[in-house]
Amino acid sequence: MTEIEELSRGRPVAIVGAGLVGSGWAIVYARAGLRVKMFDRDPEITRKAFALIAGQLARLHAHGLVAEDPAAILARITPAATLADAVEGAFYVQESVLERVDVKRQLMIDLDALAGPDLVVGSSTSGIPGSAFALGLGLSARVLIVHPVNPPYLVPVVELVPSPETVPATVAFADALMRAVGQAVVHVRKEVEGFVLNRLQAVLLREAWALVQDGVASCEDIDKTVRDGLGWRWSFMGPFETIDLNAPGGVADYAVRLGPLYQRIADSRRHPQPWDEGLIREVEAQRRERLGRDELEARRAWRDERLMAFAARRNAASDD
């Protein structure tokens, strides 16, 4: 019996929320051989989700990222008419509803009324701690954050964040499930808004917006700095390994040599103000000069194609 079979015992995964994130998760689980029941309160969102999933599976197959017939994978995903239908018989729920505390809290209350004694719930929230919406319920010990990067079937990292009421067995189960479906697990050991990934991204984004506001560089030159500079190394190593290799004596040597510079940079920014309307208009104008609003969807498809090509090359390299 495979690990997937041991974890699921033949039962399905329920996806609640069929937007971009929920659709992405459906691909992850179905690709791994699991049956998936997908529910959204808006049937039109579910209909669009199936069209998106079918197209992405065909592209994944073309890049060699799924060997199985895409139609067979798609057949493992079925729509559910109600939340109760989606949860019935499921061993795991991937919550991917709106990024609002009130919406997530009501869903947890609804799931609490439907859940069997061993149902585990993972929330796809990008930054809301579980303690904000998942405490004080019979289900609470079996709820945790399972935060992906979008699209999760191409970018595998996933953050596991327990709430104060999540029991260790739930974390262990989620870890095993994520590894079994091909995700790279990050354990966030204490609740913090934004978790790890978005806190790191927030620092870079805040400085990027500030550099535009100060007239230091254009949006394109900032993108170029990451795309053609930092991103080359970051595509296969993280910031600590990067600096460990960038000084003769390793990371401690780097800290001595360049730590004062980074401290001065940090001291020069206090970021007390939100991105104001004028700055947002300026960045929007610069981006629309390079990419029209009507071209966004096509550019997203281009992004996914590039990610698929990158994933295929990375997988081939890891097999060597």
Rank of each mutant, 00 (worst) to 15 (best):
E5L: 02
L7V: 10
S8M: 07
L20Y: 11
A26S: 14
V28F: 08
A30G: 06
R35A: 13
K37A: 11
K37F: 08
D42N: 15
T46N: 04
R47S: 11
F50Q: 02
A51F: 11
I53E: 04
G55F: 07
Q56Y: 08
Q56T: 02
R59D: 14
L60K: 00
H61R: 15
G64P: 09
A67G: 15
A67N: 15
A71M: 03
A72H: 13
R76E: 01
A81H: 06
A84R: 08
Q94I: 09
E95M: 10
E95V: 08
L98F: 15
D102R: 09
K104A: 09
D110E: 14
D112A: 03
D118A: 13
L119H: 02
V121F: 02
G122F: 05
S123D: 04
A134W: 03
R142N: 09
V143D: 00
I145A: 05
I145Y: 06
H147L: 05
V149H: 12
P151K: 09
P156E: 01
V158M: 04
V158E: 03
E159M: 00
L160N: 03
L160Y: 08
V161D: 00
S163W: 05
S163T: 14
S163L: 04
E165V: 05
T166E: 05
T166Q: 02
V167N: 05
L177W: 08
M178G: 09
G182R: 08
Q183P: 03
A184I: 12
V188Y: 06
R189K: 15
E193M: 13
V196P: 04
R199H: 01
A202D: 00
L205D: 00
R206M: 01
A208G: 10
L211P: 11
D214H: 13
A217P: 10
C219I: 15
E220A: 13
D221G: 00
V226C: 10
R227C: 07
G229P: 11
G229M: 00
G229N: 00
G231M: 00
E241L: 10
N246M: 14
G250K: 05
Y254C: 06
G259M: 02
L261C: 11
L261T: 15
S268R: 14
S268W: 07
R269M: 11
R269Q: 11
R270L: 14
H271D: 15
D276T: 04
G278S: 10
R281T: 13
R281V: 12
E282L: 15
R287H: 13
E289Y: 06
E289C: 12
G292H: 10
G292F: 05
R299T: 12
R300A: 10
A301D: 14
A301N: 09
D304A: 09
M308L: 02
A312F: 02
A316K: 08
S318C: 09
